[in-house]
Structure formats: C-alpha cells, structure tokens
Design a binder for these strands. Sequence first.
DNA 1: CTGCCTGCAAACTCTTTGCACGAAT
DNA 2: ATTCGTGCAAAGAGTTTGCAGGCAG
Lengths: 157, 157
Amino acid sequence: MSSAPIEDARLKFRAHLAAHSLRITNQRLAIFDAAFAQKEHITAEELLAQARALDDSVSRATVYRTLPHLTGSGVLREVDIGKNLKYYLPNTDSSAQVAQVICVDCDKIFEISAPFMSWYGNTVSTKLGLTPVSQRLQVSASCDTLKATGICKHRAG
Amino acid sequence: MSSAPIEDARLKFRAHLAAHSLRITNQRLAIFDAAFAQKEHITAEELLAQARALDDSVSRATVYRTLPHLTGSGVLREVDIGKNLKYYLPNTDSSAQVAQVICVDCDKIFEISAPFMSWYGNTVSTKLGLTPVSQRLQVSASCDTLKATGICKHRAG
DNA sequence: CTGCCTGCAAACTCTTTGCACGAAT
DNA sequence: ATTCGTGCAAAGAGTTTGCAGGCAG
C-alpha cells in the first residue's frame, strides 16, 4: 500500500527541508517536480528549463542552490562523467549501487547495477584507515553499430 | 638492461611527437620533465609552475596544449575526481588498471591496482553492443584518524 | 514582522582560442 | 623559407555569490 514513488520522494524532500529549517517555496517545489519527472539524465541547464515550464519565476541561481538539497535528501542522484558538467537523475532506489556505461559517440549514459562496488569500497578504504563515503564506477565505450553502419542506435532508439 | 623509467618515457614522448609530425620544442620538453619528475598528483597550474622552474618561457596555454600529447603518448595519466579540476600523474606502467581512493578530508589520492576493472568494462560494454574505451573506479572516503584525533595522518605523513 | 529566499548580474575557476611573433625543420 | 609553436590576453562554459527586494512562517 505504499504511495507512488513520486509521492514518497516529495515527502522525503519536504521532510529534508523541514529538518534543516528550510522554507518550502514554490520554486523549490517546481524544481523538485521538474527533476523527478525526468526519465533521462539531465543537466542543470535542462532542469532550469523544465522547472521554468512549471513556474516561470525559477532562476538559474535557485536551481543551483536547490540541487544540493535534492541530492542531500536522496531524491536526486548526481552523476559526474568527467565532462565539466554534471548530470542528474531521479533516485528511485537510494540503496542501489550503480555503475555507468557512457557511450563516447552519443553520450548516452546507461545505469548498471553493481552491488560489488560497496564491498570493494569498504575493503580498500579500511586498509587505508578510511571510511568509505561513496564510490563510482564508470566505463566509457564506443558504439559498435555506429562504427559499422554510421548510425548510433542508442541515440536513435 | 632497460633504461631508467624516465628515459623510456622521454623516448616514448619524443616518438609520439615525431609520429604526429609535432616539433620538439624546449617548452614541450620542459613540461614533460616537470610532469615526469612529480611524485604526487598535480594540477595543470602546478605543472605550469614546475615547468617554468625549468624554462621560464613556458606559458599556461602551452601547458594545456601539451597535456593531450603527454596523456596521448601514455607518459602521463589524467585523473578526474569530479572536482572541476584534473590531476596528472606520471604513468609508470601504462598497462595497469588502477582505481583511486580519495580522502575527502585531505584530498589525498591513493592509487590502487584494480585489474578486474577491465574485465568488468568488457563484460558490461559487450552486453550493450559497445567496445570499452576506458574505465574508472573511485572511492571517496573520510579519514578515521582525523575524526578521532583531529589530525589527518595522510596529509601530515 | 522577521529573516530566509529569490532573481539578477557580476564574479569565479578552469580551460580554450585568436592573433601576431618566433623558432624548429 | 616555411610552417608550426608560442605567449598573451580575451573568451568560454559551468557554477557560485553579493545585493536589494519579496515571500514563507
């Protein structure tokens, strides 16, 4: 009988705001709604555009100021693929460990479950007297179909 | 009877320049020497300073223009830990697959051999119809000693 | 009413680029 | 003599921040 994922996330976000004595503003809610509606990885700039579609008073600064609260509350996941540009993605299962496979031809990002990552992080950190905070595993790969046919099916599909 | 690692690397770099019809200039050699003398991860800015100590005519632009040749020839490895800032490190064994453990308290980067990475990259890429180009595995971790004593021994040591 | 939140635009950091001069081949 | 490489400074991309006014609580 649990609510829809978006309802859970909305509550989680509001709880996070409350817990940190942060105000619930229309802009913050619009940014949350825009972010959580995404099916693909989006950039801050794209998030701004989407949020403005819901509330045209949202500014770029507020998007950047809100993103840490969204990631901090666990409703959004930040993905940095080394491009001086971060991507964001609704975090539907915050306990999952995921790796990314990034197509260097079309920039599509595939999320792959990789539960061994946290085991690895633990093992290797402990040896150094450290406690793991987070880990990331990313594979950059080129598109076979593109090389063969000139068309990257991931982009098209 | 092989030469010292730095000699091998210097030859490798010169061969790369020759193979691409690039000229061997004092600036490029100074940047190479400065980079390969490093024992720790350095930034482009630090590399500029070190290279200028060897040849004060080296400019920031030339450092940035030379870095791709250094990484492309395999004598330097680029490490991106998601900080809008790249680190560079002499690549003494270009066949090694390494992961990084990054101390979030002192920013020290530990390089850890992780040979299974390329196996993972292959496995997961192939399933998607992709050919792996590179992979990275990074663990961010906090310092236990710092938490206990207020001193991060990695920084000090 | 109080103080956090906001939009705007300027500032910031790292990196890239256009241009005219200078050096490698 | 050519042509590529260089330094300089300005531009560029993404993100952050100072400020004056606005809205949540």
